[in-house]
Design a protein around this nucleic acid. Structure first.
Length: 303
DNA sequence: CGTATTTGACCCGCGC
DNA sequence: GCGCGGGTCAAATACG
């Protein structure tokens, strides 16, 4: 990725098709990426859906977690009552009699320690799911380089699909962002990437200055929309209604998926848009600046 | 030799 | 309760 450059083409995107083709060049090798918005596919909302749909209705407890809750992590965790802890069938095993201290016990202690370790994970009241979004990319490469470093921690066969699903975790310390990558069984040329969570650190590629960061005014719009999105709130309409479809897509993707790439697309789109109407982009210097990601805030304003 | 990947085992939730 | 499928862990292995 050291000498990577990115440029996009075909920005005349039909609104209904919602796709665009881009070329990524890294160390002399070019690859064509066709970004496709996943609309109602794979059970996930599309990026545009997330950004433009009204907020989901309040959950109905009696029905358990809804799909929307599952996808956004927006559900209430019911803590176990103190009394219910006695139900644990293994609690007796974890407190053996004090006078038993032979080798067998040592072995058992080790086993118990292992069990405890597992139990600590098991006992976690429903693991909170981070907000997720997915999109499709036409690519021959399964794992697309998005500027971040990932460590693969699992791979599973997918039912009704000849292609496995890979699980990746961001290698940055304290960044729990995960992503799943799988190839579509319907169209093997398409890679489905699902991000869960949000990076808690700047993109290493961006920090090296290899990619263009969009102008501040547009960054504010992006930052505002993203923060609303990740707080499971509906972004104000003025965030997006003046953007072109591809611009909106790039805006959404720039949050955590392809910040380095989409910001470049974004700038190109912004440039085009500004020629159409310079006043289309709402500038908001209020509390929004506090919500703009750090990596974006760094950019000095020069307009 | 350190780091990344592979892979089988395991946990968990859900439906029957 | 049981089986199934998705997700994660961690030891073994590969790789630079």
């Amino acid at each position: 990725m050291e000498n990577a450059t990115f440029y996009s083409s075909d920005h005349q995107i039909p609104t209904d098709f919602r796709a665009f083709t881009s070329v990524f060049e890294s160390d002399g090798e070019k690859s064509c990426w066709e970004f496709l918005d996943i609309h109602d596919t794979y059970g996930y909302p599309s990026i545009l859906d997330l950004l433009t749909m009204p907020p989901p209705p309040p959950p109905k407890p009696e029905l358990g977690r809804s799909l929307t809750q599952e996808l956004t992590g927006d559900f209430t965790v019911t803590p176990a009552t103190p009394n219910s802890s006695s139900i644990s069938s293994s609690s007796n095993d974890e407190q053996p009699k004090a006078d038993e201290k032979d080798d067998e016990k040592q072995d058992q202690d080790e086993q118990n320690a292992a069990k405890k370790k597992l139990k600590a994970r098991k006992k976690n009241p429903k693991r909170l799911r981070e907000p997720r979004f997915a999109f499709m990319t036409k690519s021959e490469v399964d794992h697309l380089d998005d500027g971040y470093r990932w460590r693969k921690y699992g791979q599973k066969a997918v039912k009704n699909s000849p292609f496995p699903r890979s699980y990746y975790r961001c290698t940055a310390a304290a960044c729990g962002l995960k992503k799943r990558v799988e190839r579509s069984s319907e169209d093997p040329t398409v890679v489905v990437t699902t991000y869960e969570g949000q990076h808690t650190h700047p993109c290493p590629v961006l920090s090296r200055g290899s990619f263009v960061i969009p102008p501040e005014s547009s960054v504010n719009i992006l930052g505002q929309a993203h923060q609303y999105l990740y707080q499971q709130q509906q972004p104000p309409l003025h965030c997006f209604h003046d953007m072109t479809p591809s611009l909106r897509f790039a805006a959404a993707a720039s949050n955590s998926a392809f910040p380095n790439i989409s910001s470049t697309i974004f700038e190109e789109e912004l440039f085009k848009s500004s020629h159409i109407s310079n006043s289309n982009f709402v500038r908001d210097d209020g509390l929004l600046q506090d919500m703009v990601p750090l990596q974006m805030q760094k950019e000095p304003k020069e307009e």
